[in-house]
Design a protein around this nucleic acid. Sequence first.
DNA 1: AGCACGCCGACT
DNA 2: GTCGGCGTGCTC
Length: 814
Amino acid sequence: MTAPLFATPAAPVARVALPVPIDRLFDYALPPALAAAAQPGCRVLVPFRERRVAGVIVERAASPAFAGPLRSVERLLDPEPALSGALLDILREAAEEFLCPIGIALATALPAGSAPRLVRGFGLSARGRAAVAAGALRGEAGRIAAELVAGPRSAAWLRARTREVADLDALLVRLERDGLVERARLLQSGPRPAVSRHAEVAAGVDLAAARQALARAPRQAALFDRLARGETPVGELGGAASRALRELVARGFAAIREREAPRDVFGEPPPADARVTLTADQAAALEPICDAIRLRRAETFLVHGVTGSGKTEVYLRAVDEALRAGRQALLLVPEITLTHQIVARLRARFGDRLAVLHSGLRPGERLEQWQRLKTGAVPIAVGARSALFAPLDDPGVIVIDEEHDSAYKNDEGLRYHARSLAARRARRAGCPLVLGSATPSLESRYAADAGGVQRLVLARRIGGRPLPAVEIVDLARERERQPRGRRVVLSSPLRAAMAEAFAAGGQVILFLNRRGFSTRVLCFECGHAEHCPDCDVALVYHAAEDRLRCHYCDHAAPTPSRCSACGAPDAALLGIGTQRLEEEVRSAFPAARLARLDRDTAARRGHTQRVLRELRDGRVDVLIGTQMVAKGHDFPGVRVVGVIAADIGLHMPDFRAAERTFQLLTQVAGRAGRDAAPGRVIVQTFVPSHYAVRLVRDHDYESFYEEELSHRAATGFPPFGRLLHALVSATDEAAARDGAARLAEAAARAAQGCVQLGPAPAPLPRLRGRHRYQLLVKGDAGSVRAAARALVAAAEALPDGVAASVDADPIHML
DNA sequence: AGCACGCCGACT
DNA sequence: GTCGGCGTGCTC
């Protein structure tokens, strides 16, 4: 069916999705002036009860489905659709599948902050207008009124434009009381393309005369001197100088010049490209992918390649093929820090013909990148999971690197998994989906067995380098050898390996899976750990501020001087974490240069990149880190990787605990020995014979897969059947428990074929002052679906203060 | 989600 | 007597 050429008179109703938790479309009348351009996928401003909100047109209709009187679309916010028909369809399906209100689903796919926003402001009332017309307002009131004649303005705008008004806020209050001015909401346009503002001495100003005139204004004089030495970006002057600058500009001594400055989201120049001859494995993997690109076939490939086998080169060649076919390419990576590496490789090969989309960009930067894709200026999109919604009209290939990574799951709003939506996008576009991993998710690997996915194996490392030797250290036995009560942080084999690495001029990465093992303040006398009063999780010691903090709600407490349970003095209180590990390493290897990478240090902007660079350049001998050191980064000088406690993740109450541990350990091990020298990996654990640990030593993914799959088959967890997770929370524990019980009953009534687990206290039974109960439902897709609908209906009927969330495809269940 | 309506306590 | 607490109900 083709779209009618003149749809306007026949379809005067716009069916609009609004970003509110009401899963329904709202009908609005389209004024004839907007009718031609207001196509599905366009954002519009509509009146909604007492306010105006931005929504997305989902459909046009000849007549309303709503019986009442229609209100009208007020304004069209996009000259052409921001969401293509394909994306709109995918999002509608996903909203349905993941039980998410349609308007919220659509909002997650559009660049945040790009839509015009409504802000508070002031406008002239009818009486105010009359007063202006009569020339009745003088002085400050007159100046304000003059600014408002053209239309309502925000207080910030007025402040910038009416410097001479002494106390603007008080004046506005007075004018409002007198009925001359009224509060208004006005549309503030979204971010604009970047301009950099430079301050300079105004043209034709005599420096000596100006200095004399500024003699009694020291701050302005200082600023003027600085500008006299050369123009300066306004941003570099700092907020304190803004007032002085304003004065200088007002007095004609300084001027501000605006310059178009395309934002640099890349940070550094592209490295030289190393286009190499493909290995036989790579060539064999690439061929069917390129065929699919050329033939517009929507096949899914699983590139299963050991660490260092050259998966990225396969991606680059596939991108190249898509561009040659006149199509575009979309690459997803699990998280922001990994975009830098893949972006460097892409720029080396394709120049700056790419856009980067991730949550680390500022709204203006993100919009700019989005628009470069939307207008077709660049053909390659790279980014984290939300880049999946990049505005490409004809993607020729979609790549998901490290496809097993749980970061591909969105855990709020539309709870999609990038993998499943990417498969739909690929199907719509007629392009291949390439999933890459050294440790594929059970789901993807199983799909390869079941036939829906074509598995392409890269079994060997580039250049025939061996995989690192993995040695397992039994912590229980190590501890027996230690003096009584002494904990083992660095076992003797790990110390020996480190010493050996340093002697050979090599580097070491120490990996501490921080989750559940962080810097808890633990009593050595009685084993008691200090807990958060609101969250039932152990508090974390922060040395920098010498305080305890809750990892979840940010509750802060002073460091205790004695154990709150048994009263033992603070000498007995200890925590183990990256900080404690750091001390241990310092005392064992005083000469080693240390760097730490974890959630605390990552908060500092640029810190992560700097540390990684220092490690690469050999300016750091030991890197101590959490999860983030495990992923993707290449450090040629690293001889030894030590895993401080491998089994911590195994104790998580999650059916994927073994899979996660295997994946994480394999990824960490892959960091060792990437150059000619073979690397060593020392894994410390209390459970050396656990299959998830043992098979890492043997680099035996296939055995792990078989064993894990048999567990899943026995328990009915994914990939066998579907899973549904509901979380009910309330400040009152009984209310949360009752709520969960009501959801459980509803699910049981709706779907007898399902197995219910719980309701039970959630793994985090209390968080931010709320008690949490959870419920798992597993079964075949149809009955889980029925249970899901029943759960959502029951969730809506829960009493006030009881919140429920339902995840139709849970990955994180904490 | 917001935002207004509505019905009961401590203040000019 | 009024300002203001948040329960509940609706949004094309």
